[in-house]
Simulated assay, not measured.
Amino acid sequence: MAYIVTDNCICCKYTDCVEVCPVDCFYEDKNLLVINPDECIDCDVCETECPAGAIKSSNEMNLERWIEINKRYSKIWSNINKMKMPMDDADEFNGIKNKFENFFED
């Protein structure tokens, strides 16, 4: 089991989770964080720190798409291991359902 970032992180990108990660397995792009599931040690501290509730266990149902996104992009995006300010409109985007259309592949 590993933890992964799901769609509520899109356009929010709170980094409280990054600050507590003991293995630095978070990666970032302009509007989303992902977790490298091969590096995650399943400690779950990031899940409770995420103000957007965007981090889920990979064992939860119907997360196959997000497992693949986390695996794929953690291999090509830059590692992040320090807390940063969230996106300017993070509070407005937090909780909006089905934000995937705001995710653009580079």
Results as ranks from 00 to 15, higher is better:
Trp66Cys: 00
Ile96Ser: 02
Ala54Glu: 06
Thr48Ala: 08
Met85Asp: 14
Tyr27His: 15
Asp106Thr: 06
Met83Gln: 15
Cys12Asn: 05
Ala90Ile: 04
Val5Arg: 01
Asp88Ala: 08
Gly53Thr: 00
Ser78Asp: 15
Ala90Lys: 04
Glu64Pro: 01
Tyr27Ala: 10
Asn102Leu: 09
Thr15Asp: 12
Trp66Met: 12
Asn31Tyr: 05
Ala54Ile: 06
Val34Glu: 12
Ile80Leu: 13
Val18Thr: 07
Cys40Met: 14
Met1Pro: 08
Ile35Cys: 14
Ile10Cys: 01
Cys25Asp: 13
Glu28Cys: 10
Ser57Met: 01
Cys50Glu: 03
Lys30Trp: 04
Glu92Pro: 00
Cys40Asn: 13
Asn36Gly: 14
Asp38Phe: 14
Ile80Thr: 09
Pro51Gln: 03
Lys56His: 14
Ile76Leu: 11
Glu60Arg: 01
Ile35Val: 14
Ile76Val: 15
Asn81Gly: 05
Tyr14Gly: 06
Ile80Ala: 11
Cys50Ile: 01
Phe100Arg: 02
Ala54Thr: 02
Glu47Phe: 02
Ser58Tyr: 00
Phe103Asp: 06
Ile80Arg: 11
Glu19Tyr: 03
Glu105Pro: 02
Asp42Tyr: 13
Met87Asp: 01
Asn70Gln: 07
Ile55Met: 07
Phe93Ala: 01
Lys82Ser: 13
Asp106Cys: 05
Asp91Arg: 05
Thr48Pro: 00
Phe104Asp: 10
Cys9Met: 05
Glu47Pro: 00
Glu68Lys: 15
Asp88Pro: 07
Ile55His: 08
Asp88Arg: 08
Asn102Val: 02
Val34Tyr: 10
Cys11Pro: 00
Leu63Gly: 06
Asp42Thr: 04
Glu101Pro: 02
Cys43Gly: 06
Glu47Asp: 02
Ile10His: 03
Met83Ser: 14
Val5Asp: 05
Asp24Phe: 13
Met1Tyr: 01
Glu19Gly: 08
Trp66Lys: 01
Phe93Ile: 00
Ile67Ala: 05
Met85Phe: 06
Ile4Lys: 09
Asn59Tyr: 00
Asn8Asp: 09
Asn79Ile: 12
Asn59Met: 09
Asp7Gly: 07
Glu28Leu: 04
Cys11Ala: 12
Ala54Pro: 03
